[in-house]
Amino acid sequence: MRSVLLFCLAALCANAMAEPAVDLQGPVAGWRYSGLLDRADDARVTYPTPPIDRGAQRGRSLIEGSLKNLQGTRQPHRLVVNGNPLPLYTDEQGRFVRPYNFGAGSNSVEVVSGDGQSLKRVQFYEANFNKTPARVRIVLGWDDPKAELDLHVVTPDGQHAFWADPVMSNGGGLDTDSVDGPGPEMFTMTAPLHGRYLVFVNYWGNLNSQGYNFTEGSNQNEVITAQISLVFNENTPNEKRETFIVPLRGIGDLQLIKSFNY
């Protein structure tokens, strides 16, 4: 009896001390051609709620996997995609699925623990050269899965890309408009117009079991931290990036993140 008890205690201690781990189903490392692998028309389930595709998610891929041994670990983990860090939340079983629009060339996906430990990293080469490289890429993520933030981009010709009008006639638009928190939302332009661009983030609403609501104070965190990455000439030797950390405190907050000339 004593030996059985000692065995059970040892097993419990081993489980408690187990290191967090990642099972990443996709994307896989190596060579890929997304024209054969992507299934953009399939209904997929993401966690904790299903995504809404407003028709502008061109060439979207899914990053999917699960986290294990999360007991006592710092939350949230981070999903770092091509250098763009995004908060990573899971369902109760540790599963996650996030949309992303990968460009042609070399891409990387890394899962990092809340204390900064790299848990899993894959590198793959996107060989679909029908995908024109992004000259301007803007990626938004935030740290409250019960809040909905929106990315707004105004281009030099006065067009405005946002959730209600995601596709521009000038070739730009939202490739990923995430409505199930905490992002990403992504704007891409492959042949940018010359002139001034404006980048805004709007705190649109909060999510609960009844759906979206607009009640002040119903957000999970008192302050929501948004992270916006501006990437120019992605996946080229001339790639440049800027990252902005912006606090948002109330529904309706609208922040001008960056005004830049291209």
Rank of each mutant, 00 (worst) to 15 (best):
R121A: 09
V122F: 12
E126Y: 02
A127Y: 03
N130E: 12
N130A: 14
T132D: 01
P133Q: 05
A134W: 14
V136P: 03
R137I: 06
I138R: 08
V139Y: 02
L140F: 15
L140S: 09
D143E: 11
D143W: 07
D144Y: 08
A147Y: 03
A147K: 04
E148V: 11
D150R: 08
L151Q: 09
V153L: 10
V154Q: 10
T155I: 08
D157T: 06
D157Y: 03
G158C: 05
G158F: 08
H160R: 07
A161P: 02
F162P: 01
F162V: 02
A164R: 09
D165W: 00
P166G: 02
M168I: 03
M168K: 05
G171Y: 02
G171E: 07
G171Q: 03
G173E: 09
L174P: 05
L174V: 07
T176V: 15
T176E: 13
S178M: 01
V179A: 06
G181M: 10
P182A: 15
P182D: 14
G183H: 11
P184V: 11
E185A: 11
F187Y: 12
F187C: 12
M189A: 04
P192E: 15
P192R: 11
H194C: 03
H194A: 12
G195R: 06
G195F: 09
G195S: 05
R196A: 15
R196D: 12
Y197L: 14
Y197I: 15
V199T: 14
V199I: 13
F200E: 05
V201N: 07
N202S: 10
N202M: 04
N202A: 10
Y203P: 00
Y203G: 01
G205M: 01
G205L: 00
N206R: 00
N208T: 04
N208L: 04
S209A: 05
Q210M: 12
